[in-house]
């Protein structure tokens, strides 16, 4: 009789733990999906954008794209060359809020977000913010400079190398952005095109950090 009571108690504890764990996991997933930046939909010509489900795109979280979660970690330092051959280091921006934006001239979503980055650079530069564009183009790099100039880019652009790609989680899909606070720590990371509002919200977060 006593043994039966122990068994029943054990079963109840086990099942309760499993149910509680499931509920917590569901809540966490739900909260994460509500906080995740929404991907921007691509619409066939002639179709109504409102009927295209942006959420049907691949999950936009950096982790879903294979990036490691680097939030809270110090942004890996690097020194890279501009297309013109000038060296630029992340350390040059010590104490500033930096948006490291990996992009390429052949990346259409990157081209679409560029005017937003230009606007945001204008808007927040005086508060100690800069975008740092890191191009993933292959040589010749002169085309990167020409492209950036043509787009009216008003922030520094450098050319990536294998070491920086590796340090930032083997950057592959573009655009990929890391938002670095004034203390040098990564506050947010995004993979893929997100809205200007989402980019701005992340910029506000890094501007709020203390050096």
């Amino acid at each position: 009789m006593r043994r039966n009571a122990v068994v029943v108690l054990g079963l109840v504890i086990g099942i309760t733990l499993m149910l509680w764990s499931g509920v917590m996991a569901y809540r966490e997933r739900r909260a994460a999906s509500m906080q995740a930046p929404q991907p921007v939909a691509l619409v066939p010509e002639g179709a109504n954008p409102d009927t295209v489900d942006a959420a049907s795109a691949d999950p936009n979280s950096p982790q879903a794209q294979g990036l490691p979660d680097m939030r809270g970690k110090l942004a890996p330092g690097f020194t890279l060359k501009t297309p013109e051959g000038k060296s630029v280091s992340l350390a040059d921006y010590k104490g500033k809020a930096v948006l490291i934006n990996f992009w390429a001239t052949w990346c259409a979503p990157c081209k679409l977000e560029m005017p937003w980055l230009i606007d945001l650079q204008k808007q927040y530069a005086a508060q100690g913010f800069t975008v740092l564009g890191v191009s993933e183009d292959d040589p010749p790099f002169a085309q990167v400079g020409v492209f950036a100039q043509k787009m009216g880019v008003n922030y520094p652009v450098v050319v990536a190398n294998d070491a920086v790609n590796h340090a930032y989680g083997n950057v592959d899909g573009l655009p990929t952005s890391y938002y670095v606070g004034r203390d040098g720590k990564i506050v947010a990371e995004t993979a893929g095109l997100i809205s200007k509002d989402d980019i701005e919200a992340n910029i506000k977060k890094i501007l709020a950090t203390k050096g």
Binding site: V6, M18, M24
Partner: peptide
């Protein structure tokens, strides 16, 4: 049976708390 349920519950609890997922987050699409 009792030990199994307790272990399963504890394991799931640990998985939940530690954020463990049943795949390598370092791979995925890339």
């Amino acid at each position: 049976l009792f030990a199994f349920f307790c272990a399963a519950g504890a394991g799931l609890l640990w998985a939940q708390q530690s954020g463990w997922q049943p795949h390598d987050a370092g791979l995925g699409l890339r």
